[in-house]
Structure formats: C-alpha cells, structure tokens
C-alpha cells in the first residue's frame, strides 16, 4: 500500500511520519508515537475510550484515519497536565471525586469532560450526563464522574 506523509502537531510538538492510508489515528498515536493514554475499547466509536482533542474538538480516534488528521493539532491525555506536572483541573477533579476505578475509560472521559465544561461552564447534572453520553464506563456507575465534572466546573476548569 502506498504510504503517505502526514504532519501533525501533537501536544505542542510537530510530528511527521510516513503512514499507510488505512492506519487508524488511534494506532498512529499509540503505535507510532507511543502515546498509549488513549485506549481502544470498541473500535466502533461507541465507547469513547479513544477520545482525543483534534483542532479543539473531542473526537473518537478509533474512527478516523491518521491521514485525515494531516495538518491538525491534537491534544491527548498525556498533554493535558502542564510541563511541570501540574494537573489540569479536570484531572484533579477526577482524582478528588474518585471518578475512576480501573482507569481504562478515564483518559477519554477526562478529554470529553474538558470539552463539556469548555462549551458549557455551568452545566446542570442533566447536562453533564448528556455530555458524557458518548463515553462508557463499566466501573463507576457515573455518579462520581458527574461529581467530578460538576466540581471542575465550579473550580472554573
């Protein structure tokens, strides 16, 4: 298969690679770049474990080819804390509120929650639950995740 060259900015750093056109973005992130924070939970865009931010929007990276991301700016969970290790308020809130157990859905949950609060800084509980609709968690029953998003919103995340 003819490979194509793509350039993307990931967590602030420019990356250029030759990739197969059929390479999924999630595999590019995980296998080519070694950014294993985003996970593959279903390969069908239904669980949201692979959620990353592309040009400022939370997207499911299992349902997009790497070549489609050519020229884009991508933020993954690894790029969320500041360079000195200071956690993003959403990460801090997930930790404080015990919004994770096994942690597998967590990077995707945090990325989508960050977008949720950016779009709606004062969400109601119902709005939070609707905003999380694309992401599955099998451990928490979501209650502590709702608490975390509410707390982060209050803290001005």
């Amino acid at each position: 298969m003819t490979k194509q060259i793509i350039s993307v900015t990931i967590n602030g750093a420019r990356q250029t690679h030759e990739v197969e056109p059929r390479l999924l973005l999630i595999h590019y992130l995980r296998e080519t770049l070694g950014l294993t924070g985003a996970h593959i939970g279903c390969e069908t865009s239904l669980c949201g474990a692979c959620t990353v931010e592309l040009n400022g929007k939370a997207i499911k990276s299992c349902s997009m080819f790497a070549v489609q991301a050519n020229g884009a700016e991508i933020l993954t969970i690894e790029g969320l804390a500041s360079a000195d290790g200071k956690l993003h308020p959403m990460q801090e809130a997930f930790w404080n509120e015990h919004a994770l157990q096994c942690g597998f859905c967590t990077p995707g949950m945090i990325m989508v929650s960050k977008q949720l609060v950016e779009r709606n800084p004062h969400p109601t509980d119902v709005e939070i639950r609707e905003g999380l609709d694309g992401n599955l968690c099998r451990c928490t029953g979501y209650q502590h995740i709702v608490n975390a998003v509410r707390a982060a919103a209050k803290a001005g995340a």
Partner: peptide, 18 residues
C-alpha cells in the same frame, strides 16, 4: 483519594496493549 490514580488520570498506566 487513591494512590493509584496519578498514573491513570495522566494516561501513563501500562495495560497489556501498551
């Protein structure tokens, strides 16, 4: 709050696929 969380919320935990 949990001791195991920092690696999980920063995407740096190691699952089999990693």
């Amino acid at each position: 709050r949990r001791k195991e969380d920092p690696r999980l919320i920063t995407g740096t935990a190691t699952y089999v696929e990693d």
